[in-house]
């Protein structure tokens, strides 16, 4: 799997993906936040219409140092050519976040000078203008269904 994102004028890193629940699927653009170690964080207004499946609960540490028990959901996400299940934290915010947990097993390449952002699996060539990406190795820590 290989996909490109974008770097905005504030040097923030954005990636597009589809997120699906029991009711619907939506394409969103999420901000890569290395201060978040979960997989995906969604604002309430995105999460509720999707009908996310409740998976349980977990302890969270927040920016103000507080620790609280919060609900945890799962969603089907599609990014690049890969679809998988991801854990989802839901908060009252405006921005969807991708955390380090979702990037586990991937390589994140960021070129702030050229404003280029690439996420790829190990063993996958970087895209070049004349050549489509090819896969050298099948090694991956993520379950792949492919096709989408």
């Amino acid at each position: 799997m290989i996909l490109t994102g974008r770097i905005d004028e504030k040097n923030q890193l954005w990636v597009s993906m589809t997120v699906g629940g029991l009711h619907s699927k939506q394409t969103i653009e999420a901000l890569i936040d290395t201060g978040f170690n979960g997989e995906l964080l969604l604002p309430l207004q995105i999460a509720i219409p999707l009908g996310l499946q409740l998976a349980g609960a977990a302890p969270y540490r927040l920016a103000d140092g507080s620790i609280s028990q919060q609900m945890l959901f799962t969603a089907n996400i599609g990014w690049g050519t890969t679809s998988r299940t991801a854990t989802v934290n839901v908060v009252n915010s405006d921005t969807a976040l991708i955390g380090g947990g979702l990037l586990h097993g991937y390589i994140l390449l960021v070129d702030f000078q050229k404003k280029q952002l690439v996420i790829k699996e190990p063993g996958v060539d970087e895209p070049s203008p004349s050549q489509p990406p090819s896969k050298k190795s099948k090694s991956s820590t993520l379950k792949k269904k492919g096709g989408k």
């Binding site: 629940g21 029991l22 009711h23 936040d33 201060g35 978040f36 170690n37 979960g38 964080l41 309430l44 509720i48 009908g51 996310l52 499946q53 409740l54 977990a58 302890p59 969270y60 540490r61 927040l62 920016a63 103000d64 507080s66 620790i67 609280s68 028990q69 919060q70 609900m71 959901f73 934290n89 839901v90 908060v91 009252n92 915010s93 976040l97 955390g99």
Partner: peptide, 27 residues
């Protein structure tokens, strides 16, 4: 001690401060 750490979210950004949610999310 915690599973998730979210450095950009404060307590006030959490929904439902009572920690009790008995509504059906798949409404």
């Amino acid at each position: 001690p915690t599973t998730f750490s979210i450095q950009s979210i404060r307590t006030n950004d959490l929904f439902g401060k009572k920690n009790s949610y008995d509504f059906n999310w798949a409404h």
